[in-house]
Design a protein around this nucleic acid. Sequence first.
DNA 1: CTGAAAGCGCTAACAG
DNA 2: CTGTTAGCGCTTTCAG
Lengths: 345, 345
Amino acid sequence: MSGKTRIKDIAFRLGVSPATVSRALGDTDIVAEPTRTRVREMARALDYRPDVNARSLRTRKSMAVLLVVRDIGNPFYLEIVKGVEAKARAAGYAVLMGNTENDAGRENEYFNMLRDGHADGMILITGKLPKQRGRTVPLPDDLPVVIALEVIEGAAVPHVQIDNRGAAAEAVRHLIDLGHRRIAHISGPVPEILSRYRLEGYRQAMAAADLPIPPGYEQRGTFLLHSGEEACEALFDLPDPPTALFVANDEMAFGAINQLRKRRVRVPNDVSVVGFDDLYLGEAFFPPLTTVNQPRTEIGAKAMDILLDLLTGEAGPAEPVILPTRLVVRGSTAPPPKKKRTKES
Amino acid sequence: MSGKTRIKDIAFRLGVSPATVSRALGDTDIVAEPTRTRVREMARALDYRPDVNARSLRTRKSMAVLLVVRDIGNPFYLEIVKGVEAKARAAGYAVLMGNTENDAGRENEYFNMLRDGHADGMILITGKLPKQRGRTVPLPDDLPVVIALEVIEGAAVPHVQIDNRGAAAEAVRHLIDLGHRRIAHISGPVPEILSRYRLEGYRQAMAAADLPIPPGYEQRGTFLLHSGEEACEALFDLPDPPTALFVANDEMAFGAINQLRKRRVRVPNDVSVVGFDDLYLGEAFFPPLTTVNQPRTEIGAKAMDILLDLLTGEAGPAEPVILPTRLVVRGSTAPPPKKKRTKES
DNA sequence: CTGAAAGCGCTAACAG
DNA sequence: CTGTTAGCGCTTTCAG
């Protein structure tokens, strides 16, 4: 009824000092057992909740971490978020989600929240370091920031990532093992480092098997559904179209398969497709998508573990932490068709 | 270098009082123009950021709102989040995301964040009011809470929702108009009110067309992919299986179509399927899913608008706000097959 | 073991 | 228009 319960209300009713109440409520300090229980019972009876702002102001820590993603609308991030959340709450931290929409201004804004007391540390899944006045500032070594999933080259900040190059190569090798020789790649936006790594993995695997990459076999996409369709269209307008596609993410792979269906090209009978990410709905897709699974929950959990270390003054890992991926073979890949396919509309 | 810049640093360098700095930085107050600019320039030069905790402690408002969803892992919520976010940031509010996992304890926890100063108001997308000590507490009328998407019956709290019953009926009517007579329904978990509304819409449309609902034609699912498969299995083990399915959400519809494919039942040639939600990937699915589109961004935006009103002391709408849905006809629905299908494994 | 007192950084009265 | 003063609610010395 009468507004909110404060520490002094409890203190007053019990005839003790506010300081004693504060101590009795905290875990650390030593308060005489009878007092301690009386305080706790009263606090519970009055439904007392400490004011976070007062506490944070005093202790200079917010007990919150910031999780900044590029696009909260991308289902891909969801499990990472869960991994972070689970660890965070276990350690008593709240998780604040930030959504940059790839906008430099907003990235900066979240970065500032570290300084204005909103959060104590941050996990970045954006592939960019915030800029100050247009130029990237070198992060102080002790700033509690962890990069997850993405890679920021040259940043002296702990990284949790996967071996994108190796995983891509493995995916391509799967196609090669199946007997494919004409394998094309639909990449993500090339300025982005993850796209480059996956592209490199593709080239590496092709080179290792002495397979040529004909002109036009490297299509550049945007990671979005429709760009998979477009890239696929370009690929199959080629005089000598591929028999297999390694696509840099699942979403574009769905788009590509869709396009193939429109052209009455059968997957996997005529053309095999491998994706990357292992999205939840990949299973329900037809055909079920062969793809590279990323350990998303673990990436989130590991990143939070490291952040927690940073927050308690421990040093982060000197080397990037690499988590293992797994090629999930489902129904979108098969050996190439026996007879040589010729150009047909 | 020397820790963080505070108001008094600026004041000291400029030879003015902290109060003047505070006023000069705020929009409202009147400060002599020269002072005002000098303060602002100095603040910018020192890269000053006001401490949110101190400010919140003093002003008793956090300028943050809480957005609580049932499962952050569900892509369905994403656009709602965006709608909320856009409005919130335009009004200077930060959005804190809460994730309940359907856990009563966690729902409560977020609710408490309203009282401990974390946030000033909240948008609930959980279908449940938080409980205190096991029982639902009636929310004070003036508590800044808005329910979006879900419905909590009997709660005197502003609602932003869609007409689930009407939208479901429209979907079923589409099937009826196509010529279907044997139409089954896969519902969500029935304790949930949204599932009930959609179920009612189905029954209503069937009744209005004088169509019977044979035993077994109402299957209960969980809104999850595999439950769509299972329900579909049960349906097509029936002696007289349906020629059309109205499924309470897209995810289960994907599962159902998958199951149908395994049984070599063609969609939409043999059986038509309508979903509900219009998930992003529904387009890429094969066949492209006919479904009910919910105006998700608008739901989020409208909910935030109302919350903003509540936060400024205005009254919320007395009646629930109903936003229009739209039946999106794509490729998963068609007239029923001409010849009567007989039972076949 | 407990109380008194100070102070985190900010803004809002209240004077001037 | 600006400075002084007080205080938001909490934790933490420092005494006792």
